[in-house]
Amino acid sequence: MLAFLIKRTANAVFVMLAVALLAFVIFRFFGDPVEMMVNEQATQSDRAELRERLGLNDSFATQYGRFVVNAVQGDFGISYRNQQDVMVLIGERFPATFELVLVATVISLVVGIPLGVITAVHHKSRLANLLQLGSIIGVSLPSFVVGILLILAFSVSLGWLPAFGRGETVDIGWWSTGLLTPSGRAALVLPAISLSTFQITLVMRLVRAEMLETLRADYVKFARARGVPRGRINWVHALRNCLMPVITLTGMQIGNLIAFALVTETVFQWPGMGLLFIQAVTFVDIPVMAAYLLLVSFIFVALNTLVDVTYAWVDPRLRDDSVKAGGANG
């Protein structure tokens, strides 16, 4: 298990270094940072001095090394636009995005897995066909359309839920959470549903496909021969054997959700990282963009590593330590 962890971590570090290189290249070579930082009246010598001070005359490798060392310490420099520390900006916005993604993920699993099981078990029934049809719509509707429709229905027509913002938040240390106030929770509902629509259908279709496969397995038939009730076979014996790909998908999709929450965040004016990124793009705020790129990649890589470790937890066959107990002959 330890060797496995070390190997996976080494892989992750390598990927992160490669991403850092990309982020650095963008940061350094897309436009001249000095040009963007100084004002119109600066003299040539001012610029040269700044260039020297920023270390832009050093070799490429030195600059890259410095960038990586700073990034590891959470130092991505100062935002061009509002002259704030980039990490502070992201730190303010990250909890909003994270809570949104977390709730959307929970919704997608809680709704998607049962729907998948039901459509697989009753795969010939009208209900299952209806759900399948619905899932095609769910997959093909872009999330901003879903968001706008939700706002139209629940905020504009019915007036039940807020259409934008995050409501009141409570600070726990540096983390600001909206989960503890009623208005914060109400504000979370529509964006989370909008963000999870696609996920629900994805999880449902995956679980359905896996279940159809698993239900044909010998151990399912043997469980029936042992007299295990149908429901228990479906929800315990078969479902557990389907969870592996669901874990993979969820792990990968959390990264995706964080990255692409920006559409939902824009629709609902959700003050998260996505919105920050959109603003950064508009103002060519390169330090913010670079930090966002690195952070999202880090989340992706971390989740992937976590998924691999979770595999070993769900499937006993992948645990290294199980080998020593086997090998007896019949």
Binding site: D218, Y219, K221, F222, A223, H237, V314, P316
Partner: peptide
């Protein structure tokens, strides 16, 4: 009941 393939008759998890 006893089935043919003991390798697949038992739920692996």
């Amino acid at each position: 009941a006893i089935f043919q393939d003991p390798l697949t008759s038992l739920n692996p998890l």
